[in-house]
Amino acid sequence: MDKKILKQLSVILVLCLVAEFVVGLLPVTFPSSVMAILILALLLGTKILKEEQIKETADFMLSNMALVFVPLSIGMVEDLGLLKGQVAGFLIVVAISLILTFLGTYATVRIVQKCMKNLALKGGEQHE
């Protein structure tokens, strides 16, 4: 059991380093975390990597994900001074844009779902 966690953690860390390497090869700036998500999904999808090879460690990370943001959130509290005189504007922009994004995304997904349902009805079973 203990060796299992070591193995799983190693797999995940290797994955991150591979992603870091691949991102370095790209001509544009691309975030390594997103690359790592894509590579992991690809490896699992092609059965090169099995879910069991990362399961327990990955599940622990997934269920406690917000932990890694604690130090960052404290850095944010420390730097509040940078916003001097613009705090109200900053908060208004973030709040309104946040709510608009959430609602706009929800609405877009629903519209696309409905369009696709109509298309599927019209075009038989071409669409999954």
Partner: peptide, 27 residues
């Protein structure tokens, strides 16, 4: 904050691995 980050940076370091395992939930 600097003293705190001395240790806390080891937790921040896991930002990428923790994000990476989202690949599993996608799968």
């Amino acid at each position: 904050y600097e003293d705190y980050m001395e240790g806390a940076q080891f937790i921040s370091m896991f930002l990428v691995p923790v994000t990476a395992v989202l690949g599993l939930s996608i799968y």
